[in-house]
Each structure stands twice: as C-alpha cells, then as structure tokens.
Amino acid sequence: MIAAIGLLLGILAGLLLQPNVPIWLEPYLPIAVVAALDAVFGALRAFLDGIFDDKVFVVSFVSNVLIAALIVYLGDKLGVGGQLSTGVIVVLGIRIFSNVAAIRRHLFHA
C-alpha cells in the first residue's frame, strides 16, 4: 500500500515539478530508469514467491542503477557508448520479460 502510494507520489512530483535533466545526467537517466524497473520487477517476483527482503531490494535497486550508469559511462569513455547502452537495454529487457512472466504465473496461474 505504502509502496504504491510512493510510486504515485513520485510520478505526481515529476509531473508537477517538471525538472530539467542536467546535461551530464542525460545519457544515463534512461538506462538508470530501465535498470530500476528491472529491480522493481525482480522485487515483485520475489515478493510473490514469498522471499522478499527489503534490504536486498534496496541494495539491488541502488546497485542496478549505479552499475548501469557506470557501464554507459565506461562505454562513453571507450567510444562505444551508444552500442553499450543498447546492450544494457537488451539485457535488462530480457530480465524484465522473464520476471514479468513469473509474476504473471503467480497472479493469473497462467
């Protein structure tokens, strides 16, 4: 309940404040958002499996975001930023899909 309210509050704050993304953050924000989404879906799956742990969630959320940003940063430095961003998005997308599949089995038994 509180988690859902938190998500709503975040979306509302983003809509109302309409902050400008700093230029240095611009390449990393989309990747970070996708990485955080991956962590959230993983947490939801673990919750439905009954093995959710808030500490693990926090650590995985933060590390997901940081590592994704780090990879993109490293890619930019190496001159392959665009390709590496694509690679990260692909991997995260695959994980999100498999997590959502497990969640679907839990919720709909299908």
Binding site: I2, A3, G6, L7, L9, G10, L29, D54, F57, V58
Partner: peptide, 19 residues
C-alpha cells in the same frame, strides 16, 4: 520495509516521468 520500498519507487516514478 514498505516505507523504504515506497521511497525507492517514488524515486523511480520521478525519474521515469522526468525522462
């Protein structure tokens, strides 16, 4: 533990909308 989850989800929603 829901409070910390709420905070992180709020950060996620904020970042997603901003992006």
């Amino acid at each position: 533990g829901q409070a910390i989850v709420a905070v992180l989800l709020a950060v996620l929603g904020f970042a997603a909308v901003t992006q």
